[in-house]
Nucleic acid binder design. Structure first.
Lengths: 222, 222, 222, 222
DNA sequence: AATGAATGAGGGTTCATTCAT
DNA sequence: CATGAATGAACCCTCATTCAT
C-alpha cells in the first residue's frame, strides 16, 4: 500500500514515458474502452501487474496520456507564439503547430480527439481545463484577427473556434502522412481554407496578406 | 442463417425502429464499446434476450444504427438537391441538410461520427460504401463550385471535403441546440465560414453571391 | 394448455416420424446437449414453436428418438428369431440384425449408443427397460449357446454380453458403410470374431459349425 | 498468444494436474457439453476466472484431459511391452494395460471414449494422432499374432482392432469396479474372449497357449 | 395446427484490479 | 521493482420454453 511519492529516478521517468507512448498507440488502435490493460502490457513487454507500479488505474493511464500530450502541444505553441505579434501569423503558427504535432504523434492525438469523454471526475476536469486553456488561446487570436481586419462579428467566435478545431482534429479519421499531402502542406491548406474560404483565397482567386503569403511559399513548394 | 426472413409486419418494423433509436442514444452517451447490451435493453424496457430477436449481435445493432442514419441523410439530401442547379446553392443545401439532421438526431449522428471504426468485416464495408457515396456527392459539388468560380485548385478537393466534414461533424463534441446558436443559424454560419473564410465574407467584410445572400437572410433572422 | 391425447391422424404420425428422423440426425451430428432445438427446427424446416406441438420438451424428443429406435430393433429381432432354434444361428441373427440396423439408421443408433445417459427420471427408466429387454434376449441366447457347447462358465455371461455389445456399438465411432467393408460382411466378421475368437475360427484356422458356415457363405460372397 | 510461457513451477504443474483430474470427473459425470466451467470451478474450489489462468478455453481443457490421459496410457504400454517378444503375450499386456488404466482412471477414460469428437480443429488433430499411434501399436501386435498362428486373414485387421477396442472401451457404460468382477479378472476375461472366442477357449472348452495360460492363472486366482 | 415474439436462466469468456512474494 | 496467481463483476450471447394469436 506504500504510496510511491515522486520517484524522480531518470530510469523511472524514461520508462513511464515509454509506457505512455505504448499506451497511446494501443488506445489509438483499439479505442480506450476496447483496449485492455493486458494489451498494453503485452505491447510494452511488461508484466500485467508491472504496469500498476506506474499507474493507479486504467483511467489514470488515459489521463496521463492525454495530459502529457496536451502539455506538449501547449508548451510548443506558447514557445512558438513568443514574439510574434501579427494576428494572422499567430493563427498560422497555431494551425501549423497543431497539425504538425498531430501528424507526428498520430496515436496520442487520436486519443486526445477521440476519447474526449472517457474520463470522469477530477481527471476529466483537469483535461477540460487544459483544453479550455488551449481553445482560449485560439479564440483570443481569432478575436484579435477579426478586430485587425475590421470585420463584423456575424459568426460567434465560439462557433468559429470549434469549426477550426473540427477541421484540424477530424484529420485523425482520414489523414495518413504517407499517403496524402505532406504534413506542412496540409497545415497550410487548412489555414488558407479557414482564413480565406473555399471560394476565396484558398481557391487562388485572391491575394493573401503579405506575411501569410511569404511563409506559405516556403512551405508548399517542395 | 437468418432466423426470421422478412418480417414485414408493421409492428415489427416499428419496434425495430424504436430499438434503433434507443440504441443510438445509449451508444451516443457511453460509446459503443462501453455501452452494454444490458444498458440498451434496460433503456428500451425490453428483456436482454428480447433484443436478440431484432439483432444478431451488438455489432449488427451498431451497423443498423449507422446504416439507417446514413440512408436517411442521403435520401433527404438527394431529394433536396433535386432541381437545384447552382453549385453554391447545392453546397448550402448539403451543409444545412447535414447540420440540421445532426441536431435533430444528435445521438445517431454522434454514433456515426464517433464510432467510425468500431465495425469490422462486411458491416464496415457497407458503411464505408455509404460514406463514400455521401462524400462523393460533396466532392462533386465542390468541384463544380470551384469550376464555376474559375478558381485554381491549390487545395486538393479531397482535403477540402474532409475539412468541411470535420467542421460539421465535430459539432457532436460541443454543440448543444438549447445552449448555443439555433440549428439553422449554425448551419448558415458554417456554410459561410467554409465558403467565404474567416477573414472574408463570413466576417461580414465582403458581399456574398446573390443567391446565398437571399437565403441566408431568411434563415438567420429569427 | 390443451393436452392433445392421441391424434392418430395419419398426417400427424407421418410428420412426427419425419421430425424424429431429423432430430436423430441433428443429435447424431452435434450430440444431444450441443444440439439446439433451433437446429432441429431449422433442419426440419418447421418453426421453433411448431416443434412443441409434437414434443413437450427436448428431453422427450430424445426419449422418442431412442424409444422408436429400440422398438424397431427389438421388433425386427423378435420377428427374425421366430422359428429359429439353433443357438448359434440365433446369435448370428441378433448380430446381423443389430449391425444392419445400425448401418441403415446410423444417426439414430449413434444417438442410442452415445446418449446413453442424457435422459433422466421416468424417461431414463423406460429406455433402461427396453435396453434390458434387449440385452436379456442376448444373454439368454448366449447362455443357451454355451450350454449347447458344453462349455464351462469361466467368463460371466454379463461380461460376455457387454463385450459383444461393445464390439457392435463401437462401430459408430469408426464405421462408414461407403468406405469400409459392406454391412453384411461386417456383421459376419463380428459374429465370427466373437464366437470363434481372433486366434480361432475367425482367423480361418478351424472349421465352423455347419449352420453358421452355410449362412455366412451366402453373406460374404458378393 | 500464450500469456504465461513455460511456468515450470512445481506448484503450477501440481495444481494444473489437480484441475485436470477434477475436470475429467465433471466431464465424465455430466458430459462435456453439459458440464459447465462453473461446475468445474466449484468442484475444484477455485474461482471461475481462476481456471482461465490454466486453460485458455473449455475446449483446451478437454484437450488437455484427453491428451494427458492418452500419453500416460501410451507411455505405460510402451514400457510394459519392452522386452516382451511373444505376440500373444504382447496382446495380453495391451489389454491388461488398457483395462487396468480404465478402471483406475474411470473418469478420464470415460471422457476419452465418450467425447471422441467434441474437439475441433488442431486439438482434434493432435488427439487423433495420439489415438492413431495407439491403435497402430495394437494392429501391429495383431498382425504379428496372426502371422505367428499361421492364420488366414478373413477378417480385416482394421475391423479386428476396432472390435477389440469396442469391447474394451464399452466398459465405461456398464462396468463398476466395486460391483462387478475385479479389474484384472475383467481384463483377462476380455483378453480370452477376444483371442479364443466365445465358443472356444474363453468358454473353457479348449486349451490355451502355454504362456497365456501361465499368466492368467496368476491373475485370476485371488 | 402453427408461429412470431418474448423471456429468465445460464453459457463461456474477459476485465481491471489486488497481493503475497 | 516486478511478477505470478487469483478473483468478482461484468461482458455478449444462446438456450429451452411459453403464450397470445
Amino acid at each position: 500500500m506504500a504510496e510511491h511519492a515522486i520517484p524522480a529516478t531518470s530510469d523511472y521517468e524514461e520508462k513511464l514515458d515509454r509506457l505512455l507512448t505504448v499506451a497511446a498507440e494501443v488506445f489509438a488502435k483499439k479505442g480506450y474502452h476496447n483496449a485492455s490493460i493486458r494489451d498494453i502490457a503485452r505491447h510494452a513487454e511488461v508484466s500485467l501487474s508491472g504496469l500498476y507500479y506506474y499507474f493507479r488505474s486504467k483511467e489514470e493511464l488515459l489521463y496521463k496520456v492525454q495530459s502529457r500530450c496536451f502539455q506538449t502541444v501547449l508548451a510548443d505553441l506558447e514557445q512558438r507564439l513568443e514574439g510574434e505579434e501579427a494576428a494572422d501569423e499567430r493563427l498560422r503558427i497555431l494551425v501549423h503547430n497543431h497539425v504538425r504535432f498531430f501528424a507526428r504523434n498520430m496515436a496520442a492525438m487520436r486519443v486526445l480527439s477521440h476519447e474526449y469523454d472517457a474520463l470522469e471526475g477530477p481527471y476529466r476536469e483537469k483535461i477540460r481545463d487544459l483544453r479550455r486553456r488551449y481553445t482560449d488561446i485560439c479564440t483570443e487570436i481569432l478575436r484579435e484577427l477579426r478586430r485587425s481586419m475590421g470585420g463584423a462579428d456575424i459568426v460567434p467566435l465560439g462557433v468559429v473556434t470549434f469549426a477550426l478545431f473540427g477541421m484540424m482534429n477530424w484529420i485523425y479519421t482520414w489523414y495518413r502522412p504517407d499517403r496524402n499531402v505532406p504534413v506542412d502542406r496540409l497545415a497550410e491548406h487548412l489555414y488558407m481554407l479557414f482564413v480565406g474560404g473555399f471560394v476565396g483565397r484558398a481557391n487562388g482567386s485572391a491575394k493573401r496578406s503579405r506575411s501569410a503569403s511569404r511563409r506559405s511559399e516556403a512551405r508548399t513548394s517542395r
